[in-house]
């Protein structure tokens, strides 16, 4: 499960008024990972609501201390106000206006990839810093931030894989992953594969509770972080 692939396949969240890029031939990656975000913008001058769809292959969410992934996803879809030098060009008003905007999920992908933005640019340091906030995530998930016209808003996701960045900063470190296979959690660390025999331990490791697993213990304690990097969730029916 190479993390790079997913990370490079994302689109910027804040895209505003750009035309959709020409669609490439759909591949299995599209079938599995592609979802649709709908971005709704309401001009505060004329009240017109315009919406625009865009594809996504993962959702990049900001992390906050002592929150859950559910909360981070809700924040992802919070309404933001576009104002000052970030005004919205309203077609109806033919001018830049203040507007409200929010992004919600219209088509839920078969496998939902969530990317926790743990590398944050800090102005005072003039570089990216790893954010070690505690963000818990359950073994299954539903989305609260679906759009009104979403086809299957109750879709239930099961956690199938976690990618973890070990290390203190963005420029170094090591990626490992934990993947669920046939009901077992497997830990992949380069050429080493470990079976997480104890389901209970695994449940402890994954939601970021006290850690019993030795191979992860040092990492968790040293960073104070729970997860970072990419996380993949699959629909339970696709697990078999």
């Amino acid at each position: 499960m190479p993390a790079e692939r997913h990370q490079s396949s994302t689109k910027p969240k804040m895209g505003n008024g750009e035309t959709p890029t020409p669609q490439p031939e759909p591949t299995w990656v599209h079938e599995i990972f592609q979802g649709i975000l709908t971005s709704e913008t309401r001009c505060l001058n004329c009240e017109t609501v315009s919406s625009k769809d865009e594809d996504f292959f993962d959702l990049q969410v900001d992390v906050d201390q002592n929150t859950s992934i559910t909360h981070c996803l809700k924040c992802f879809s919070n309404t933001e106000t576009l104002c000052s030098d970030n005004k919205f060009k309203c077609d109806h008003c033919s001018s830049y206006q203040e507007a409200q905007k929010r992004m919600r999920v219209k088509k839920l992908p078969m496998i939902l990839a969530l990317h926790l933005k743990r590398f944050k640019y800090m102005e005072q340091y003039n570089r990216h810093i790893k954010v070690s906030h505690r963000v818990v995530f359950p073994l299954e998930l539903r989305l609260f931030n679906t759009s009104d016209d979403a086809v299957n808003p109750d879709r239930l996701y099961d956690l199938v894989a976690v990618v973890i960045h070990c290390g203190s900063g963005p420029n170094r470190g090591h990626y490992i992953s934990i993947v669920k296979s046939h009901g077992f959690w497997l830990l992949f660390d380069d050429d080493m594969v470990d079976l997480q025999v104890d389901q209970e331990d695994m449940a402890d490791v994954v939601p970021g509770s006290p850690i019993s697993s030795i191979c992860l213990q040092e990492f968790y304690i040293s960073t104070g972080a729970l997860i970072s990097g990419l996380r993949v969730m699959g629909e339970c029916s696709s697990l078999g």
Binding site: D64, N78, T79, E80, T81, N86, Q100
Partner: peptide, 26 residues
């Protein structure tokens, strides 16, 4: 909150606040 510019958006990361004020403002 009205005075918040796009640069300050980060401080509204927990957008419940911004959402609330946004609607309120309007």
């Amino acid at each position: 909150t009205n005075a918040v510019t796009s640069k300050d958006k980060e401080c509204l990361v927990d957008g419940n606040v911004s959402h609330f004020h946004g609607v309120n403002m309007h």
